[in-house]
Structures are given as structure tokens and as C-alpha cells.
């Protein structure tokens, strides 16, 4: 496991989920013979004026509000996504400018499929933990695309989650340790300049999602001398509902531990945001002293695992910005036609 020289934690967190949803059965109506077993109930759909950058901006505002840190005190604004609006031009500078960050910062975009956001978190731990900086804003945000009719289309969703990584003494949750595990496993990829990703169907499961999350999680638990029973809550990357439930069970976590952070059924797979969004929803309900285990997953492939301890600061700080539930509550269903138009799936 890896631990910084200087103890670090989450000073503020913020989430954002777009207003619009499409029901999986509405997608099935268009593409499938029957609506058999669907991976989620609904998924979030970005509005026609939203993209990864706009999603990230709102999540960052929420994180800053909770942290009560001036944007001028951030040392880095890092945005992890697999749907950066520009191929060349950083999302990070736009987000930084929009939130009023100083210009004397590091701003960069991260890419590692669905764990681009946690990559930025781990790097932020390094920057703060080494003493090089006090606060780093790390964001996972995506407006994921699924090829029309593909299995991914049922789940490819949109959301953002932002964490401000700072010194442990002022954190609302301390990050005890982290660990990353990666291998060259091509379960899912999108070539440059192609609109939709390709995935290896069942190959995305056992050798990819399960192997990597299990490896990272088991090793971190072992290094810490803990078991699943030592945690109040657990959050795993959630490309659908079943995968995180299954991996949790394999690792010994219960459904109750995972419940607050398992949003895929409603939100879908928000890619780089997914694990951090689940963490945000968990922090929304956590109490001082609670412990949270988090493991992300990114295709291609890798997993970042974290062990967190919630501090007293959570109680007052979480109400400084909208809770995840507020975003989930304001849902407006759209039909496939409007969804297809907004997502650029209609060839004009």
C-alpha cells in the first residue's frame, strides 16, 4: 500500500448528476427483442448544453462550498474523463477558470477509461502528501457514449464528482492508504477520433473488472490488516448494478455496506465519476468515525483502492452543498428520440 509522508484527506466533495434520465426499457423498446434482464433501471442523460466540462464545473463548485477553501488556494485542477470535449485542449484550464482558481496551478486532463478520476485523486494525494501543495481539486466527469443498440448504451451515463484533497487535519475524511493495480487487459477501448468504444463483452468481466478490483482491494485490506467487516461502507466502480454487488460479495462486503453508494440502477454507469459519485453519496450519510472502502476500475485495465475514515467535520460540511439525493430527485425522463438527438446519434 502507499501512504503519503504527510497525512491527507478529503477536505470537500461535490457531485453533479444531470436532470434528464432515459429508462433502460425505453432503449430496449428500440433495440431489443424483449426487455428481459436490464443492467440498470434508468441512466442519466446530459442536457443538450452539457458536457464533461460543464458537469465538472458544478461538481467543483459543490466541492469548494463544502471545503470552504478559496479557489485561489488550489494548487492543481485535474479532470479525469474519457469524454473530454476537446481532443486537444485541456478541460482543466476551462474548469479552473470557471471556478476562479489561481493561474499559478497545475491544470491537466487525465484519461484511464473509468478510473481517470481516481487517478487524479491518487496524484493529488502525492502532491499534498509530499508537502508540495495544500489543496488539489481532482474530478471525475463523463458524458459517456454507447453505440446505438450496443449493450453499453443501456448504461453509458453522465455525472461528475469532485474531491478536494488536502491535509488530514482539516479533512472531512482521512485517506489512510491507497493502492493501484494495473495490467494490459484490452477489455474495452476507443480508438482516437472514433465516436463509440468497443468492448470485449464477457471479457470485460472476470479477467478485467473482477480481477483488477479484487487484486487491488485484497492487497490493500491485507496491507492494512483489515477485513471487509472492519468498514462501515464500501463503494466499487459500478458499470451496472450486478458487477459491484458481485465483487463486494466476493470480497466479503454486505449489501448494506454498499447500499448508500450504489447508484448505478438510477444513474447508470457514469464512467470516471462512478466510484467518486458513490463515495459522495456515502459521505452524504456517513457519521464521524465511519470507515469507507473505495475501489475504482478503469478498462485497459486497472483499479485504485482507498481506505477512508470519516471525521467530525462531515456533519457540518455536507450541508453546504446539494446532497446527491437532491440531484437524483429532480429527474425528468426523456424518450429515445430526444435522447438520440441530444447525444448526436441522429445523422443530419
Amino acid at each position: 500500500m502507499r501512504q503519503p509522508l504527510r497525512a491527507v484527506g478529503i477536505t470537500g466533495y461535490g457531485v453533479y448528476v444531470p436532470r434528464y434520465r432515459i429508462a433502460a426499457r425505453e432503449i430496449a423498446r428500440v433495440w431489443a427483442d424483449s426487455d428481459g434482464a436490464l443492467p440498470v433501471t434508468t441512466k442519466s442523460v446530459p442536457g443538450p448544453d452539457e458536457d464533461t466540462i460543464t458537469l465538472a464545473i458544478e461538481a467543483c463548485h459543490n466541492a469548494l462550498a463544502r471545503a470552504a477553501v478559496s479557489p485561489q488556494d488550489l494548487a492543481a485542477v485535474w479532470v479525469g474523463s474519457e469524454s473530454h470535449p476537446y481532443s486537444v485542449k485541456p478541460s482543466g484550464t476551462i474548469v479552473a477558470e470557471a471556478i476562479g482558481a489561481s493561474r499559478w496551478i497545475s491544470a491537466a486532463d487525465w484519461e484511464f477509461a473509468c478510473k481517470a478520476g481516481t487517478e487524479a485523486v491518487s496524484a493529488g494525494m502525492g502532491l499534498v502528501g509530499s508537502g508540495m501543495a495544500d489543496y488539489v481539486l481532482a474530478v471525475g466527469a463523463d458524458t459517456a457514449q454507447g453505440r446505438p443498440g450496443d449493450a453499453l448504451e443501456y448504461t453509458a451515463a453522465a455525472a461528475a464528482a469532485a474531491l478536494i484533497i488536502g491535509p488530514a487535519e482539516s479533512a472531512l475524511a482521512r485517506i489512510e492508504a491507497t493502492l493501484s493495480y494495473v495490467s494490459d487487459t484490452p477489455d474495452f477501448f476507443r480508438r482516437a477520433d472514433r465516436p463509440y468504444p468497443v468492448h470485449g463483452q464477457r471479457f470485460t468481466g472476470e479477467p478485467a473488472y473482477f480481477a483488477h478490483i479484487s487484486a487491488a482491494s485484497r492487497q490493500l485490506l491485507a496491507d492494512l490488516g483489515r477485513t471487509a467487516q472492519d468498514y462501515t461502507y464500501a463503494v466499487f466502480h459500478q458499470p451496472n448494478v450486478k458487477f459491484p454487488q458481485t465483487v463486494a460479495k466476493q470480497l466479503g462486503f454486505t449489501a448494506a455496506q454498499c447500499a448508500p453508494g450504489l447508484l448505478a440502477g438510477e444513474v447508470g454507469n457514469s464512467y470516471s465519476a462512478a466510484a467518486l459519485l458513490g463515495l459522495g453519496a456515502t459521505l452524504d450519510v456517513a457519521q464521524p468515525g465511519d470507515t469507507i472502502f473505495v475501489a475504482s476500475y478503469g478498462s485497459g485495465a486497472g483499479s485504485d483502492a482507498y481506505s477512508l475514515v470519516v471525521t467530525d467535520a462531515i456533519v457540518e460540511r455536507r450541508n453546504r452543498a446539494p446532497l446527491t439525493a437532491a440531484y437524483l430527485a429532480r429527474q425528468t425522463l426523456v424518450d429515445y428520440a430526444l435522447y438520440a438527438k441530444w447525444r448526436g446519434k441522429i445523422a443530419v
Binding site: 448544453d49 466540462i53 460543464t54 464545473i57 458544478e58
Partner: peptide, 20 residues
Amino acid sequence: LVVRRIGTPVADGLLVYGYK
């Protein structure tokens, strides 16, 4: 206040973000 894209993006064009 939210920051969103303003106007329909054109291919090879700058994405314009601003207040709504």
C-alpha cells in the same frame, strides 16, 4: 447560475461556455 455550452457547436469550432 450554471455554466453551460452556449449555442450549437460547429465542427472545428471553439466550444463556447458561459452563464445560464
